[in-house]
Design a protein around this nucleic acid. Structure first.
Lengths: 244, 244
DNA sequence: GCCTTCCCGTTACACACTGTTACACTGCGG
DNA sequence: CCGCAGTGTAACAGTGTGTAACGGGAAGGC
C-alpha cells in the first residue's frame, strides 16, 4: 500500500486545514478541496484512496456530491457532519458513504475510521501494491529515507541491516498477502541462487526473527509480521476501528 | 445475560424473515409475528427483551400497538418505518418507542440500535460488543479482535490456537444447528482434503474437548458447546436457568 | 597482512500445535 | 447384569516455528 492520498472536502478553511494537518502528521497525503469542482479535478487528475466529505457544504450539496462520487468513481467515502441526527446518518448510508463521523470528533477516532476504511478497501481489491517503504509511516513507523534506519512510533531509532531492510520492503510491498519462505527468498536473492529449491534451511525464519526483534513492540507476540503456519509470513495491517 | 429474545413484528413476510434471519445470525432469538394477536400471545407466553415494530402494519395500527405495549408491558420497543419524515419519528417517540429506524436501513446500524436499547434496558453499559463473534458476546465473552484471544465474563484471558478459533467460528456461525463431525471438518479444512470421508478419526472430538476446556466454565458439563449424541455438536442457544 | 566488527546462513534444541491412539466412561437395549 | 456404540480425554508423535549459538566471510582500519 502506498501512502494514502486523502481528499479533504470542507468549505470551512480552518476545518479543512486542521484535518489535513492531522492526516499529514499521521502519514497520509492530504489534499484539501473546498468545492465540487476541485473534488472532480483531483479525482480525475490522480489517484485518490479516500474522500473525507463534509455533508454541510453551504447548502446540503455534500450529499449530492456523495451520490455523484459513488456513481462516477469507485472511491471510499467517509462523511463528516455536525448534525448527528439519525436521519442524517441514514442519508449518509443511503448515499453510499462507507462510514460516518459526527463533528466534533476525536482525531484519533477519525484516524481509526480512515484506516479501517482504507484497510477494507485494500483487502477487497486484488491489487498488489508495490510502493516505497515509506508506507511504513502509515503504521506509525517512520522510514528515514536514510538507508537502513527506521524510527518507532515512540521515537526510538533502529538500524536495520541490508538484508533486514530488504525483507521489510518485500513484506511491505505485499500487505495482507501471505508469502512463502520460497517467495521471500526469491525476492531477496537478487542473484537468484536457487540451486536447491527447498534447501534454504531456516535462513528466512531467522531473518524474520531478527527483524521482529528490532521493529516489533513485543517480538514474542508480533503484531506486524505474522506467521502463517504451514505457509510463511504476512505483513498484517489489521486496523481495528474502536467504537466511539 | 441470556440470549436476547426479540419479537419481530411486520406484516410483510419477506421483511419479517430477513430481519429475523439477520438477528439470529447475530446471536439473538428472533420471534416473528405478523398480527397484533400474535404479539400479545408472545408477550404473555414468554420473556421478550425487545420488540421490533413496523409502524405500517396495513393501516397505521403499528402506532396503536406501540401505545398498547407501552401501557400493558414494560418492554423496549424499536419502531421501524419506511417513512422517515420527522413527524413520523416524533409520533414514534410520543407513543413510547425507545428508538426509531427508517427503512431501508443498514443492517449493522439496526443491530447497533438493538444492542443499545438492550444494553440500556440491561443497565450493563460496560459490555463490549464486537463485530466478529457477536453471539459470543451475548454470553458475556469478549472476542478481542486480537488474534486468537477471548476474555471470559470474569475478565480472565484465554488464548485459542488457530484451529480452536476456527472451530469456535464455525460453531458460532451456526448457532442451535447441530453439526456433524464431517461438516465441521469440512468447514475447518480449507484444503478440502476429504479423500477418506470417514477417516478423520477423532480429531474433531479432541479439538472440541480442547476448546471446551478453555472456554467452558465447567468443561465437564458444557453449557455452550453441547454434544448431540449420534450426530455431532451444537452451539447451544437455549435459554435456560439464566434469568438474571 | 592482521585484527575487529558486523552480517548472515547453519545448526540444534525447545516449544507449540494438532492428529492418532488407547482406554475409561456413559447411556441404552437386551 | 452384560454388551455395544458413542463419547471424553490423557498420552504420544509428527510437523512446524522461534531462537540462541556458532562460524564463515566481507569490509574497513591499522
Amino acid at each position: 500500500m502506498a501512502i494514502p492520498r486523502i481528499l479533504v472536502v470542507d468549505d470551512d478553511p480552518e476545518m479543512r486545514h486542521m484535518m489535513s494537518q492531522y492526516l499529514r502528521q499521521n502519514g497520509c497525503i492530504a489534499l484539501p478541496a473546498a468545492t465540487e469542482a476541485e473534488v472532480h479535478h483531483h479525482l480525475e487528475g490522480g489517484r485518490i484512496d479516500l474522500v473525507l466529505l463534509d455533508v454541510m457544504l453551504g447548502d446540503e450539496s455534500g450529499l449530492e456530491i456523495c451520490k455523484g462520487l459513488r456513481r462516477d468513481h469507485d472511491v471510499p467515502i467517509i462523511m463528516v457532519s455536525a448534525l448527528s441526527a439519525d436521519h442524517q446518518r441514514m442519508a449518509g448510508y443511503e448515499t453510499g458513504a462507507d462510514d460516518y463521523v459526527a463533528k466534533p470528533f476525536n482525531p484519533e477516532l477519525l484516524l481509526a475510521r480512515v484506516r479501517a476504511v482504507l484497510s477494507r478497501a485494500r483487502r477487497s481489491s486484488s491489487l498488489i501494491y508495490r510502493r516505497r517503504i515509506q508506507t511504513f509511516t502509515f503504521y506509525g513507523w517512520v522510514y528515514d529515507g536514510k538507508q537502513d534506519e527506521v524510527r518507532s512510533p515512540d521515537g526510538y531509532q533502529v538500524t536495520l541491516s541490508r538484508r533486514e531492510t530488504a525483507l521489510l520492503k518485500v513484506l511491505l510491498a505485499n500487505p495482507h498477502i501471505p508469502l512463502t519462505r520460497q517467495e521471500i527468498a526469491t525476492a531477496l536473492d537478487v542473484t537468484g541462487d536457487q540451486d536447491q529449491p527447498e534447501s534454504t534451511g531456516r535462513a528466512i525464519d531467522v531473518l524474520v526473527g531478527r527483524l521482529r526483534s528490532k521493529i516489533e513492540a513485543d517480538p514474542k507476540s508480533p503484531e506486524m509480521i505474522r506467521t502463517e503456519r504451514g505457509i510463511g509470513y504476512v505483513f498484517a495491517v489489521d486496523v481495528r476501528a474502536e467504537e466511539g
